[in-house]
Amino acid sequence: MTIFASTFFDLSVNFQLVVSGLALGAIYSVVALGFVLVEKSTAVLNLAVGEFLMLGSYFGVAFFMERQTNFFIGTFVITMIMALFGLVIHYGIMRPMVGQGFFAIVLATIGIATVIRAVVQIRFGPLEKGNLTALPTGTMEVAGTNIRWVDIIVMLVVAASVGAFLAFYSLTRTGLHMRAVASNIEAAAGVGIDPDRMYAVTWAMAIGIAGLGGVMLGHFTPSINPALAAIGLRAFPAAAIGGFTSVGGSIIGGLIVGVIEMLAGGHLGTKWREPVAFGILFAVLIFKPTGLFGQKDIERI
């Protein structure tokens, strides 16, 4: 077998790949979380999720590079701006489009994505920016391999914010309402929950989370450019493994996809990263469409 490099069984190489795969997977899970949240509660396939992530990274450029904002304040402000943006999208576009076909709404999100890409290129120029450096750079040595501090911090921040979100989603009253609307909108409306408001909250949270993921991505990647939006596509394999309807499953799915992709990229060559990720997606959809944690839909004729 010539496609396997001699490093295939090298433990330290594999360890390094797994750690950066986990950091990448953490970002994937943030993307997948925002994607699954919208998909589950509003039945809209948000194809613009990658563009929102890219927008978050560019907001990071505007705040941390151009204005030297404090990391915590900047991240908070970016997340809030993105959440407001989510509200605008819900009230401006998604609400008037209620009742239209699935594909039309998907195309509307693509329209939004096009506008974001154009605006970002007008504001920041076509040239790529260096990565954000508001977090400590440098490496730390663990078990004979160098691990970037950024990888660890990205994982921690993502874990903390996703944990906070999951606590909100499962413990608070608003989270309960969101889950109620997602599971059965008519019954939820019948007991006095305003679905429209819950949709708005869902959009705001999903886009806000994407903004946070964008800031993390900006620290993680070597450079920030409009092509970063392609990472949004990776939300699909992650969400498929998680089963599309499970918010927690999307996080585990993201980590799995990140690690597998890094291992495939490291051992087989970079060009295999996308086919492997989407091959997984394909296989999961064919053999187990409900994923690891999804619930089986029962359909009425």
Binding site: E39, L45, F102, V106, L233, F236, A240, F244, K271, W272, E274, P275, A277, F278, G279, L281, F282, L285, I286, P289
Partner: peptide
Amino acid sequence: MPALRLRGLYLMLATIGVHFIVLL
């Protein structure tokens, strides 16, 4: 073939998988 098992969103994502495999 995936269309025999999948519908809507799921089919869309499976065919994205097809796209990347053919692209390779």
